[in-house]
Design a binder for these strands. Structure first.
Lengths: 358, 358
DNA sequence: GGGTGGGCTGGAAACGTTTCCACCCTCCGG
DNA sequence: CCGGAGGGTGGAAACGTTTCCAGCCCACCC
């Protein structure tokens, strides 16, 4: 029933447990003849070491936790993969947890982080407050926050410049001649959504100042809601039904944009001729949509690998014997990546200046 | 540095370690006054139990491993989520591993399964042989195989009836009037791909027997390759360039079908008028494609929950004290789900002939 | 008033490793 | 011939829990 243990191997090979351990880990010197004997016994008994026991001694499982709102959301798999690849190179594996946009860290969180089951954690897109979080996270447990920010939490972070992304997207729409741009925004209070909206507003204001015909910043043109396709669909539909006029859509993520495309199609609006549409994220299916969706690309996979690497760095450091003089924990690092414009058919128009509209 | 342990709590509360353990786990009787004292000490010291140590004693971490080829492939996130939800209800968490279609279980596999780091495992879409697998998997470690089959491996399995799915898809194309159906098949030797092809062939043969004009089963119409969008694109393109004539495409998965749509569009073939297209899996973006893609739906999330539940059942059983008389391990279970047709625009045509059926 | 039994509690042995320490050789230099 | 160095090895104490077992105390019953 019980699996074979070091003690069994030791007995079989006629040596002590300590020696078996030395052979298995390749540390210290052990005579070649004994080594062979032990190896042979291991093979015969089909032994492999118990990592749980090992972890207990070493005070470190080689696991890291990754929290995402929902792995089914197409934005996260690439991140998960990036994290997994980055940490795998150091022998770590990923424990995945879906948080479902819960407002508080659940029992899973507590179990994993406080129970010493993981050596570190990556929080991606979680909507938790800094206060309960810093109380819950053990002091010696490195954490990396990505995507959304958690203001006040002392932890490394990786994100993209959402404001810049929003600016780029909106400028692009202005460049292709849009004058009334509907913004399908994300949830209120979420840092990514706020940043993108800020960029949108900034583009409109600075646009008004320069030589082109003033684009309108109309509060009717701004909607907020969850980052989901259905929400994009229903909000666009509502806009169309209400007779609101617009010739461009900047959606705060691709799912919203895809929903918008569906609504526009249903109402017979041509994209990009009648309405140009741009999304955010560059999820896989953006390129496959019809028309292929222009979008602000986030290097999701790379975001994941960077977060993974940051975590590995912390872990290396905390494992190292000599501590740097004063600060046991160096300052939190913050990495901000630049998004990039990926222009596809959904905004590909003749540059028309002051031509027919709607 | 070191986190607070039971010993600390015991000292603080002036009781023995054993008593603290009893309070924490709520077993045995402990006097209300001591209980309160211990609880108070726990709160003061901000203690939480070390799960690694607990696991060592109990011989069970509450973790299960999930192996998928690539979480970035849109087919798998829903499965992962299903598994996670199913096992979460029993307090288990999921350790995720990407196998990248490797031909052999890698070091991760060995580390996790043999190192007692997980109590069970789910193998999804892995292309490993039964022989090395059964050698590697500890006898007391329950495993569930899903999606692809691993012939010869003694383990529970969940899958859908791929042959039936292929049959349904092909029959549907025949029903809407297709006579020369291109099959974009999956890799040779993979059970899912083989099943779908078998269904395709079966539909064509039985179709030839009945009253409608004979549909042609032409070996030129059958291609095989990886389950990827690019492959669907290039194979369809090649078919179009070679002048092969066809009026329908049955793709062995949705990614292939999406690639095919792209190629058809590029060559100016209208879908569904010139070529009707049907895929397999019903991934999220199938509905968002243009035209929305008809497909054979697999209940992926449900597949995941079922696999998770099967694993939980095995774990409950192996944890239960009394063993049923003879067989310590009951026979492997096999669940086969039926796929269902999801008809969208990509095959919506006038019924050319007079056939009127469901 | 001496069992008897039950509620509470503590000691200590597990669980399967790693690693410190001590020991025994053998071999070498003086 | 002796001292010491150092390679090879084993014993045993950790790591932080659970749980068995034994013991204490007190109330209760004959």
């Amino acid at each position: 029933m019980s699996r074979t243990t070091m003690r069994d191997v030791a007995r079989e090979a006629g040596v002590s447990i300590a020696t078996v351990s030395r052979v298995v880990n390749g540390v210290d010197a052990v005579a070649e003849s004994t080594r062979r004997r032990v190896l042979e016994a291991i093979r015969r008994l089909n032994y492999s070491p118990n990592l749980v026991a090992k972890s207990l001694v070493h005070r470190g499982t080689r696991n890291v936790a990754l929290f995402v709102p929902d792995i089914m959301n197409p934005f996260f798999p690439a991140i998960a993969r990036g994290v997994a690849d980055a940490v795998a190179s150091e022998g770590y594996t990923v424990v995945l947890c879906n948080t479902d946009d819960s407002t508080e860290p659940g029992p899973h969180f507590e179990r994993l982080l406080r129970g010493n089951f993981v050596d570190g954690a990556i929080l991606c897109g979680t909507a938790w407050d800094a206060a309960p979080l810093s109380e819950l996270i053990p002091a010696d447990l490195p954490v990396v926050v990505m995507d959304r920010r958690v203001p006040g939490l002392r932890a490394d972070s990786v994100e993209i410049d959402n404001r810049l992304g929003g600016l780029m997207a909106t400028r692009h729409l202005l460049d292709v001649g849009c004058r009334r741009i509907l913004h399908l925004g994300g949830p209120v209070g979420v840092s990514t959504a706020e940043g993108r909206l800020a960029g949108y507003l900034e583009a409109l204001c600075s646009g008004a100042a320069d030589e082109r015909d003033a684009a309108e910043a109309d509060s009717d043109l701004i909607t907020r809601g969850p980052f989901r396709a259905e929400s994009g669909y229903s909000r666009t539909r509502a806009a169309l039904e209400s007779g609101l006029s617009f010739d461009g859509i900047f959606a705060a993520n691709d799912l919203l944009a895809l929903g918008a495309l569906q609504a526009l199609r249903q109402f017979g609006r041509r994209v990009p001729e009648d309405v140009a549409v741009i999304g955010f994220d560059d999820i896989y299916m953006a390129a496959l949509a019809l028309p292929p969706l222009s979008t602000v690309a986030q290097p999701t996979y790379r975001l994941g690998t960077i977060a993974g690497r940051m975590l590995m760095d912390r872990l290396d450091r905390s494992a190292s014997p000599a501590q740097p003089p004063a600060h046991p924990q160096p300052e939190p690092k913050r990495v901000v990546l630049e998004p990039s414009l990926r222009i596809r058919e959904s905004t590909r128009r003749e540059r028309v200046q002051g031509s027919e509209e709607e």
